[in-house]
């Protein structure tokens, strides 16, 4: 039982990363039907940038809480900017091109960002400076042996806050409404005066920003970064987005936490090396039963 609780807490933490990154996948897919393979790399860039800021500021005498906040904000902004720039340069010119061409561009962008990072930062693992209050010994002991570290608590809390914020943004603001409209019918949205290019860019900026935040927290939690980290995490997050129902924002959150839990239980009860088989096996099983994912809407059959 204690094991189960501990696995659940670990799973929720990892799930929070997946959920944050899955949101970007799902938003971009919803709007331009693109599987943005580079999205995981926005996460990686955020992690690297946060590492840079932390290295620069730890030891400067600033309180470590402030350092963490600065790193979070800087990495989020940088990832968001990268998302916006890639949308402008790589994707927007191809919005009318066949979907598969966009997919090639996304693969190209992903490799370019990964190996651009490798060229400037090296291919090895880089360790992230130690932040005292986020280390494993600072934890809330629940029942005996089950611990929720401050770091885990922070990751889950920040993620939930961002998800609620995003949900309100998409449902309550004008730009959010424009995004939802665009997802339904691009031509109609344009005719109704929605600035399509700007809205697409905004979607990329927000999605990449969320990935940047996730990257920072990931760097602080695991404390190490590598230029390929976004690829592996992105694959999981993409799976989470599909599991929840791609194009559906609450679905991405649910899918993210589910994949996190599944991974944690699989690692705990089966074996780490079988985790992928369990995760993808469950995904395929769910899709066979519910072809549009857990929260995905049923696509009406029309002839």
């Amino acid at each position: 039982m204690n094991d189960f609780l501990q696995y659940t807490l670990n799973g929720l933490t990892v799930g929070a990363f997946y959920a944050l990154v899955a949101l970007g996948y799902t938003m971009v897919y919803g709007i331009i039907r693109l599987l943005n393979f580079a999205h995981g790399d926005f996460f990686m860039v955020g992690a690297f940038l946060a590492t840079g800021v932390l290295s620069l500021l730890t030891g400067s005498g600033l309180p470590s809480g402030l350092v963490v906040v600065v790193a979070l904000v800087a990495a989020t902004a940088a990832a968001a900017a990268l998302g916006g720039v890639s949308a402008r340069i790589v994707y927007l010119p191809l919005v009318k091109a066949p979907k598969l061409s966009l997919l090639v561009s996304a693969l190209g962008l992903s490799l370019a960002v990964e190996y651009g990072t490798a060229l400037s930062q090296g291919t090895g693992f880089r360790s992230v400076p130690h932040i005292g209050f986020l280390s494993a010994e600072h934890a809330i002991g629940l029942t005996d042996g089950v611990r929720l570290t401050y770091a885990q608590l922070g990751v889950i809390a920040v993620s939930l806050a961002l998800m609620i914020g995003l949900y309100l943004y998409v449902t309550r603001t004008f730009t959010g409404t424009a995004m939802r409209v665009l997802a339904m019918d691009q031509d109609a949205a344009r005719l109704m005066g929605v600035n399509v290019e700007r809205t697409i860019m905004m979607t990329f900026i927000i999605g990449a920003g969320l990935a940047g935040t996730a990257g920072t927290m990931y760097a602080l939690y695991y404390p190490q970064v590598n230029f390929l980290m976004g690829f592996l995490l992105g694959l999981r997050a993409f799976t989470a987005a599909v599991l929840g129902g791609i194009g559906n924002i609450p679905g991405a959150m649910v899918g993210g936490f589910l994949i996190g839990l599944l991974e944690s239980y699989a690692t705990g009860y089966v074996a780490g090396r079988w985790t992928d088989v369990v995760v993808f096996g469950v995904l395929i099983g769910v899709l066979v039963i519910r072809p549009s994912g857990i929260l995905g809407e049923r696509v009406a059959e029309r002839v």
Binding site: Y29, L235, D276, F280
Partner: peptide, 26 residues
């Protein structure tokens, strides 16, 4: 999986690819 829409098929095929590789590895 053939009743799935094309984009879902993409992730399912990706999943099968990984399952085959990981299984072979284990």
């Amino acid at each position: 999986t053939l009743r799935l829409r094309s984009d879902y098929l993409a992730i399912v095929t990706l999943g099968f690819g990984e399952i085959v590789r990981v299984t072979a590895n284990n």
